[in-house]
């Protein structure tokens, strides 16, 4: 009886998930309605500039016309390059619509890129995505925290990861799997880590990567 109930529950959950017209995701995974994301910066020393990029995307399960509305707490800071092929600076709001096919994943390109200095104060971005029948609202807080210098808060309690050039130094309380993905989402490396040690990243081509280690995720630039 318990098995039947569990199966029905899973079927119901699967049905509910497939009934969603679209999902929104960021570099840290799916974005729930009402969520607040905190996005630190990546500093590029070669260009002497800072990027805050939550890598927001819409994955359409159902074809339709999707609208993104975004309002920033500061005018002239956040850029919006998705949907239309043109880039605009939020002053402080913008709204764009586009037709998306079922199964298509479309980057929103809502971010702060190419800043010459850190933010004078945190910038908050209210985003609403709708296809007319479903709506996902969330907040992105752009903060002055270096994403490439360490790992994000949940994993800090369980240890540290530090990138030094092409070496990853780790110190973990529990065993965890470290996985590196390129910006297309393809896995380029996976290692089981335990205790304290280092991983040689010299075989990884230069570029921007996303990593996951246990529950922690982050972005790193490998030069």
């Amino acid at each position: 009886m318990n098995k039947i109930f569990t199966s029905l529950l899973m079927l119901g959950a699967a049905f509910a998930a497939s009934a969603q017209n679209f999902t929104v995701s960021s570099v840290d995974g799916p974005v729930a309605n009402g969520a607040t994301l905190s996005v630190g910066y990546d500093y590029n020393s070669e260009w002497d500039m800072y990027d805050w990029d939550p890598e927001l995307t819409i994955h359409a399960n159902k074809a339709g016309t999707y609208t993104i509305s975004a309002t920033a707490s500061e005018s002239g800071v956040v850029q919006f390059c998705g949907f239309t092929g043109q880039c605009t600076i939020l002053k402080p709001s913008a709204s764009r619509s586009a037709s998306i096919s079922a199964g298509q994943e479309v980057p929103m390109q809502l971010d702060i890129k190419g800043a010459f200095e850190l933010l004078s104060k945190p910038v908050s971005l209210e985003v609403t995505v709708t296809d007319g029948s479903e709506t996902v609202k969330f907040t992105v807080n752009f903060v002055n925290e270096d994403r490439s210098a360490g790992i994000t808060a949940p994993a800090k309690a369980a240890g540290t990861l530090r990138f030094a050039g092409r070496t990853l130094n780790f110190s973990l309380e529990n065993a965890a799997t470290f996985t590196l993905y390129n910006i297309s989402g393809r896995q380029v490396m996976s290692r089981a880590l335990n205790g304290t040690g280092s991983v040689n990243l010299s075989a990884i081509p230069a570029g921007v990567y996303v990593y996951r280690c246990g529950t922690a995720t982050g972005k790193v630039i490998i030069k």
């Binding site: 092929g85 043109q86 880039c87 890129k113």
Partner: peptide
């Protein structure tokens, strides 16, 4: 155009 504009190469 602009160096930092992602759509500009297009």
């Amino acid at each position: 155009t602009g160096e930092n504009c992602i759509n500009c190469p297009n």
